[in-house]
């Protein structure tokens, strides 16, 4: 599975903001923390605001804050704002029946992988991901 950059950046932003829903962060704050483009992230944040997961706070000291439900929102909820997670089989038109059956079988296998991927991402809430990340940070502190 190759996650789109937009989905990955959205997960960075949502997880960072959800880790402290009281806190407001600018696009630059988040982009710098993850070493990503502020310009690209700003576009992603607009989509997150439209979805209701994030609120834009205007004025001095403004920024973004998390407004979703941390133990109900899953990683898939965030990713599906940006992509469908359907593997694409770039198939030409099969000439014979045998070719069609092989293509159908390969499509069925990629569907099986996609279903499994979605089932995993749809059961990991932001809260679970944040708890696991905190545990990981405690076990292996950054030097």
């Amino acid at each position: 599975m190759k996650m789109h950059k937009a989905s990955l950046f959205a997960l960075y932003a949502v997880l960072e903001l959800a880790s402290d829903p009281e806190r407001q962060l600018s696009a630059t704050d988040i982009a710098e923390a993850y070493g990503i483009s502020t310009h690209h992230l700003a576009k992603i944040l607009r989509t997150l605001v439209r979805s209701g997961l994030v609120q834009a706070v205007r004025g001095a000291g403004g920024g973004y804050r998390f407004t979703g439900v941390v133990n109900r929102t899953t990683l898939l909820d965030v990713i599906e704002l940006f992509e469908t997670l359907e593997s694409e089989l770039d198939t030409p038109n099969p000439k014979g029946q045998a070719g069609a059956a092989v293509i159908e079988e390969l499509q069925s296998i990629t569907n099986e992988i996609d279903d499994l991927t979605k089932a995993i991402l749809d059961t990991i809430t932001l809260e679970t991901a944040l708890n696991s990340a905190r545990l990981r940070a405690r076990v292996a502190p950054q030097g």
Partner: peptide, 14 residues
């Protein structure tokens, strides 16, 4: 895999 409540619970437990 459709039992998201139970799956999410086990996920939350690591």
């Amino acid at each position: 895999r459709e039992d998201k409540l139970t799956l999410s619970f086990f996920r939350s437990q690591g």
